[in-house]
Amino acid sequence: LQPLPHAKTSFDPGGELTPEEAITSYNNYYEFGVDKSDPSRNAWRLQPKPWSVAVDGMVERPAAYAFEDLVDFSALEERIYRLRCVEAWSMVVPWIGVPLASLLDKVGVQTGAKYVRFETLADEKQMPGLKWPVVDWPYVEGLRLDEATNPLALIAVGLYGKELPNQNGAPLRLVVPWKYGFKSIKSIVRITLTDVRPRTTWERQNAREYGFFANVNPDVPHPRWSQATERRIGEFGRRRTEKFNGYGELVAHLYQGMDLRQYY
């Protein structure tokens, strides 16, 4: 993994970073297996270079882009974000990437587009987990356009100063730290601008448990467990979970007037 030159930013929650070894060997990436240790064991099969991303739908310049042409590598920045998994564990991760908005600028969003739909690679030769129908493959995620252009939404290409390891979503992935981890889709091969709300993978799998918005919210329990507290990886106790994972100042306005119990 090559080192990535990057600028430091003020995005830093303070406190300790989760150790690199934990971030790269405790993963949910079902395309490589359902156990937390499966992705780090199996993801060597993934070929992140060369990598092409199909950009289509309501965009000015639809094309198959080499991922290096979508991400401005001279503008990389480090952002230390909290990550809160829907399974009630959390980490603090030093990502390297560019704002998602900069990608959308590059391809030109047409007026009338309301949502961004993302798709993960689904290649059985590279991803042994696809043999089992845990969910409908390929993995699909989506954001409302105003969420996607929020400055907090990041396209990450690196971690801990280097390129992304495969199990963390190489070569490029989404990071939306105010939402549960499953929204931050990995190894993106398609980005579609659309005016209809995409049906996301987990919403399709179980709409009662996983909503389209999936904002971190201690007041809205998952039907199978409470979301009021979380376990930071490396700690024995539990921490209180913060609304919007503590990023409310930057994102709460996006949901003004929405009942977050209904739109979970």
Binding site: Y30, V34, E87, W132, P133, V134, V135, Q205, R224
Partner: peptide
């Protein structure tokens, strides 16, 4: 069965 996410083999 209920505590696992999605449809899992185990």
């Amino acid at each position: 069965y209920m505590m696992r996410k999605g449809i899992q083999a185990e």
